[in-house]
């Protein structure tokens, strides 16, 4: 049984959608592009495709090995497709949450957040080092449960395509029931925000219900427009530096570590642990010491 790679088929659609978004912005829709930023984002996307082609075989081999040890043999039918899509999205939530809270995973995921823009091209700013950071481990339970690896990767592709379309400022709020259940442009703008209230929130891929269930949901506040990017925004558009900067940071912190704990925290602690600028610290500091002109809560 072979499954198509839906992302490959969607690439022309991605390009058309970006062109439409740029035209819409020029005609007054909310949003912004910068050709240099977009070039970097798309170069990262291209590199991600190359990295997948080079290293994806090992992940597929691991998936089939785990599937050989499966607990159940699930049929390939409509309900297993639907169930797989939902469970893959749940696995994505935990991958994504870990990717923001554990520096080893963040070193790979930070690439996606390294743009100060939030548009459809930002969606394609993807890591080159996902294999190295072991992000594929989060999907392993699905293979062990008995979902065919091809089905899991197919659902993962659909998930990625869905997420592409929520990377836009040009769409405001969707109908209430959609905002209640689905991840939307509004919810995901929060996720890309560096505002203290928005940091490390809304990890969902497709279904925002995971954030509501696990206590990580924050609604977009019209009075608090998201400031996109990362806590220490990069000062370079160089794709290679974008790809490796956090790994370089980990290496430097490891070399400077004077204890086993410091070395461990440099890799497995939350991003910003060494400088005391974790998202929790920044949020707490903003509550007691808001920017000038705003009252403390």
């Amino acid at each position: 049984m072979t499954f198509p790679d839906p992302v490959q088929y969607a690439i022309p659609l991605f390009i058309i959608a970006m062109v439409i978004e740029m035209i819409a912005i020029r005609r007054g829709a909310r949003g912004a592009y910068d050709w240099r930023d977009t070039g970097t984002s798309l170069a990262m996307g291209l590199g991600n495709t190359l990295a997948g082609a080079a290293l994806g075989g090992a992940v597929v081999a691991l998936a089939f090995q785990l599937w050989d040890w499966r607990l159940f043999t699930l049929p390939l039918t409509w309900w297993s497709l639907a169930l797989c899509f939902v469970l893959d999205d749940l696995a994505y939530y935990w991958f994504h949450r870990s990717a923001h809270r554990v520096r080893w995973f963040w070193a790979s995921h930070v690439i996606h957040h390294s743009s100060q823009h939030y548009n459809l091209s930002t969606a394609l700013r993807q890591t080159w080092t996902g294999f190295f950071s072991l992000s594929f481990l989060f999907r392993c339970p699905l293979f062990l449960l008995g979902f065919h690896p091809g089905l899991v990767f197919f659902c993962g592709g659909l998930n990625l395509i869905y997420q592409f379309f929520i990377h836009t400022e040009s769409v405001g709020r969707l109908p209430r029931w959609v905002e209640a259940v689905m991840n939307t442009p509004s919810h995901h703008r929060v996720h890309h925000g560096t505002n203290p209230a928005y940091l490390d929130r809304n990890y969902a891929g497709v279904f925002i219900v995971w954030d509501r269930m696990f206590g990580t949901f924050v609604a977009e506040d019209a009075a608090e427009p998201a400031r996109y990017g990362i806590v220490r925004n990069l000062a370079s558009f160089n794709p290679l530096w974008v790809a490796v900067h956090e790994w370089v940071g980990i290496a430097r912190d490891l070399m400077a570590a004077r204890s086993l704990r410091a070395a461990w925290m440099a890799m497995a602690g939350p991003p910003g642990w060494k400088t005391g600028e974790t998202s929790d610290v920044i949020r707490a500091r903003a509550l007691v010491m808001p920017p000038a002109g705003q009252p403390a809560e």
């Binding site: 690439i11 991605f14 390009i15 062109v19 740029m22 592009y33 050709w35 070039g39 170069a43 291209l46």
Partner: peptide, 12 residues
């Protein structure tokens, strides 16, 4: 895909 990248960059 590489041509698409150049196209979108240039268009922007």
């Amino acid at each position: 895909s590489a041509l698409g990248v150049l196209l979108v960059m240039g268009l922007a």
